[in-house]
Design a protein around this nucleic acid. Structure first.
Lengths: 246, 246
DNA sequence: CGTGAAATTAACCCGTTGGATAAATACTGT
DNA sequence: ACAGTATTTATCCAACGGGTTAATTTCACG
């Protein structure tokens, strides 16, 4: 026949479409922020029509909130998979730092989304019951690790787990989130493989030195020999596929 | 006469106008980011007309870059005023942390502007010869302080001054820049006076403990007496409000 | 004074953008 | 097959927002 046989034009795929929309939205919001994101751009990137966004998710802000919630869900899920219970306290902390670092490296949109939400003074997050109920397991993990460390004598002093958690996140987050401006200021590429390795080593050395009182190498001077837990060991242990973009 | 005597409508003030425009632009860009900022809003906030922005500065991006450069100029100027040469190494580091912390607290727009610029992958900063020539004096200050500290025995090991500089900035920057989302997540106000004091103490304790090897109180437990604090005590002391909201 | 440049205002232009409407097409169950 | 609903497409639009044009007013200087 002439009219019906014009090749199938499209097929239904609600879930798939929804996922593609959210994925595209995540990329767009991460790249341009909330105000800078373009709804049409998200639609095109999702291989869809703008109308689809409103049909499947809602308006721009709904879309944004859903993306944000998804981002928190994802990191919380991965956090739960990291059990530090069976490790010696210093190794547990090193592992925690290593995880945080690599998660941020592999999920740069997460950093951008958090910055965007903070620019908005967490306006959306406050309205999200979902996110507020997703507690990070890290605080409790850290608390028990620190307690164990103090009791075993590995650590000299106790730390508020929330402060430590924030500090570990800070050391990694700031470096990566601000790598663009910092690279310009310092005139060197902070995202090169060497620079990243050096940074990870420095962070682990700094925190462990503070906690244990033992000097770990030279506070993160790269190619250092392997006394105690070196960053290389940990890195090799946790992160096989660290390489990044072209 | 009826027509000429209608009270003076406006007076000339080029420099003043320019300053008010830049001040208003700083506030607007800091509050909404580059894409979210509204040119009309800046004009109104400056007590001016939109046309004035273009007359005195240039288009939106010129305006933004000028604001950004001004922000860097300001912090660099204050940094230069801080001489750490005559202080004992540990005190110099503590002073540096204290300065960074308080500067960030008193200039929150600076944090927002940096985040905005990083979202733009430092696109504007790269084009700014002005900023690229404004090196922070801190890196060299830190280098000499660390060297002195190692020689005097105050510090156990040398650190890359750039890494240390970034780490100090990170500990303060992340906490403040992300205080909105963190406050929601942890269910407590991280910007209260007590919380801020506690944070400052923690940062100083963390860095100095790592550098000197000596345990400074209990890694930043606030009003705590100088007895070695046990984990239980810390837990009880720090975590009263860890339970989550409604 | 009065005149010309500098500073400021008022009004308009026009592409963009978030959002809405309505029509078309694919599936599902019967 | 067929009806009814779920999904998708094709347009449309009113508001917004950056930028411009042109007219108006102030002031320094002769």
């Amino acid at each position: 026949m002439a009219k019906t046989r014009r090749i199938l034009k499209w097929q239904r795929d609600p879930e798939g479409m929804r996922l593609r929309i959210l994925e595209a939205a995540k990329a767009e919001f991460a790249a341009h922020g909330l105000a800078g994101a373009r709804v049409d751009s998200i639609a095109k990137q999702a291989g869809a029509n703008k109308r689809m966004l409103y049909y499947h998710v809602g308006n721009k802000e709904d879309l944004y909130l859903e993306v944000l919630e998804g981002a928190y869900e994802k990191i919380r899920a991965e956090e739960r998979g990291l059990d530090l219970e069976h490790l010696e306290p210093p190794e547990a902390i090193a592992r925690l730092i290593d995880f945080t670092w690599n998660y941020f490296i592999q999920n740069p949109e997460f950093l951008a989304l958090l910055n965007t939400e903070n620019l908005a003074k967490a306006r959306h997050l406050k309205r999200s019951t979902k996110v507020k109920s997703m507690h990070s397991p890290f605080v409790e993990m850290i608390r028990t690790v620190v307690t164990r460390g103090v009791e075993s004598g590995d650590f000299r002093a106790a730390v508020d787990p929330v402060q430590l958690y924030i500090s570990i996140a800070a050391l990694a987050f700031f470096y990566l989130s601000n790598s663009a401006t910092l690279s310009v200021i310092f005139g060197r590429d902070l995202l090169s493989k060497d620079a990243r390795d050096e940074r990870l080593e420095h962070m682990i050395a700094l925190v462990l030195a503070a906690l244990t009182g033992k000097s770990i190498t030279a506070l993160g001077k790269s190619k250092a020999p392997k006394l105690q837990v070196t960053a290389q060991q940990v890195t090799r242990f946790v992160v096989p596929g660290l390489t990044r973009d072209p």
